[in-house]
């Protein structure tokens, strides 16, 4: 096995020479992270694959609602060098489309279906990307989007049971009513008692 730090150096040169990197970060001797432009991703993956990174370990997204962007994350691995490479690229959040990487890594098929289901990203080139995978009959915005409100969804989908009748042990000395009144008053003081 070759020295792992020199592996990192080799990949760094390779990537730096071929692509305009927005950011590059060496996380440790086994992990390197690059931020690329969206259009460079496919070329970068091909280059990496032909350089021994045969395995696509992971494909997922990060939602950045304030930037109106979704960050795509691809992690590829080289079994001979024990090295993981993360590729990051941001795409538009309102119309999230990312060409499929199926021709490069056929194993991305299910990852892309999952990413579509949880983040709403479309993957043209993957014939099945919009087929249901995990969430049966999902009828809301993709649940991993940060503006998805799990509480509201639970309220909509599941009845709320009142556990009080079965579990509550209360009496006249209950402190709850006073506590609630006090809290309401204190909160009213915040806006000057008038709204």
């Amino acid at each position: 096995m070759t020295n792992s730090m020199s592996n990192v150096g080799r990949i760094n040169t390779l990537m730096g020479k071929n692509f305009s990197l927005i950011d590059a970060k060496i996380i440790d001797q086994y992990q390197v992270s690059y931020v690329l432009k969206k259009d460079d991703i496919h070329r970068a993956l091909s280059v990496l694959k032909s350089n021994g990174f045969r395995q696509l370990s992971y494909l997922s997204c990060v939602d950045w609602p304030n930037d109106h962007e979704i960050e795509m994350v691809y992690i590829v691995m080289n079994w001979d060098e024990a090295l993981h490479i993360q590729l990051h690229a941001r795409i538009d959040r309102d119309n999230p489309v990312m060409d499929s990487i199926l021709p490069i890594y056929p194993g991305a098929k299910y990852y892309e279906r999952e990413a579509h289901e949880f983040f709403g990203v479309a993957f043209p080139g993957n014939p099945d990307y919009d087929k249901q995978l995990i969430l049966e009959g999902w009828d809301d915005i993709p649940p991993m989007r940060k503006d998805f409100d799990p509480r509201a969804y639970s309220d909509k989908k599941f009845t709320k049971r009142d556990p009080k009748e079965n579990f509550e042990v209360t009496d006249k000395t209950s402190k709850r009513p006073r506590q609630e009144r006090r809290e309401e008053r204190a909160n009213n003081l915040r806006t000057g008692g008038k709204k």
Binding site: P150, R161, D162, S174, K175
Partner: peptide, 29 residues
């Protein structure tokens, strides 16, 4: 995140400083 937990008053728990007489109930639905 799913509002599954409700604090239910339990006056049978001994009153003490730094504690409420309440315990959580979880709806596994």
């Amino acid at each position: 995140p799913t509002e599954a937990i409700t604090m239910v008053e339990r006056m049978d728990v001994k009153e003490q400083a730094g504690a409420h007489q309440a315990r959580p109930v979880i709806d596994y639905g």
